[in-house]
Amino acid sequence: MEEMLKRKRESWGNLTDITSNKIKEMLNQDRTELTIPYITIKGPFSKGTIKDNIEKATPDTMLAIEGLAVFQNQRLSYWLSSKDSNLYALTKSKIHDTTLVTKCQKQSGYVTWKDVRSKPVIHLQDKEGVPSFLLQLQITGKLSDVSCNLDTSTTKAIATLEHDAEQDLQKQINQLLVKTQNKKTDINGFGEVMYRKQPDRWNRVKNNWNSVYSTVQIQTNVRLDF
């Protein structure tokens, strides 16, 4: 399990560095909902308990870290899929080396980017006294593979792919944020940003932050540089 977490660090950053002390600290602070990696069993459980299983080149049953479990008020709320967990990691942690897949916008196919690095920043904004947030995400990497019908030998084509990737990622991130708001689970740390930037305002809303978070306006700004 420790080795699996080490491998996940490439795509999840410090989200894998979860310890009992860190969990206790987050629960005591109560400003960001807790997320913990979960393990799934792939294959029949009965075969996984047999010694022969681990002696095979390809075991019938394996353990895998698929995604993240989201807690609310110290209770399990829901599961993030592997795809959503990877997307969430981009918006939450500084990723140093992972692979990213985006859709081609005007035709069928996908684009694979490698050596992807991300730098997320959350800004607290005010609009007529109502708190709002801007999530900025700067992503760099290298073009690896293109399955859509497009000539990638020109600068214009690469620019088109980057623009398409920005639009696709921004759409996916917005969908994930809407999900967390509907669930009233601030997993990105918007409350933490308010606590640091405007502690007086945080003290006024902290006891009702889950409900406040579900209604705040969150803008996203994704910029790719490949």
Rank of each mutant, 00 (worst) to 15 (best):
Q172E: 15
L5A: 04
A157C: 08
N14Y: 13
L137D: 00
I36G: 03
I18R: 01
N86P: 10
L176C: 04
V121G: 03
Q107G: 04
P131A: 03
K156S: 12
T155D: 13
S46T: 10
T215S: 13
N53M: 07
Y213H: 07
S118L: 11
S132N: 11
N53S: 10
T61E: 11
Q74G: 00
F190C: 05
E2S: 14
T49L: 14
L5Q: 09
S147A: 04
A64D: 15
G48K: 08
F45L: 15
N210P: 06
L177Y: 00
T185F: 01
R196N: 13
D84K: 09
R196F: 12
K8R: 15
M194K: 03
I18F: 06
L143Q: 06
L5K: 07
W113T: 08
R204F: 00
T112I: 13
S108G: 14
V212F: 13
D17E: 15
Q167M: 09
E162G: 04
T98G: 06
F45P: 03
D225P: 08
L15E: 00
S77V: 05
W113M: 09
K127V: 08
R31S: 14
V178H: 10
V116Q: 04
Q29C: 08
W209R: 06
D151Y: 04
S20N: 11
N208M: 10
T220F: 11
M4K: 12
N53A: 09
I95W: 09
D225S: 13
A159E: 07
K183T: 06
D52R: 02
F71W: 13
G109V: 11
S93H: 07
K8A: 02
L87R: 00
R204K: 07
Y38N: 00
N86D: 13
L124K: 09
T61S: 12
G48L: 09
D17Q: 13
K114N: 13
A69M: 13
D151M: 01
T19A: 08
I218A: 02
M62N: 13
F226H: 04
S153F: 01
S77A: 15
K114I: 07
G141F: 03
N210S: 15
V111W: 04
F45A: 13
I122R: 08
H96A: 14
Q198H: 07
T185P: 05
T35E: 05
K22F: 12
I18N: 05
V130Y: 07
E192L: 07
H163D: 00
A159F: 00
C104W: 09
T16Q: 14
Q170S: 12
T58Q: 14
W202A: 02
E128V: 08
H96C: 03
D30A: 15
H163V: 02
G48C: 08
V216W: 06
E162A: 08
D60Y: 12
L15T: 06
K8P: 00
Q29G: 11
T19K: 08
L5R: 06
N149M: 09
V146P: 05
Q198R: 11
F133G: 04
K142H: 03
T91R: 03
R223M: 02
Q107M: 10
G109N: 10
A157Y: 05
Y88Q: 01
K106I: 11
Q198V: 05
K47D: 01
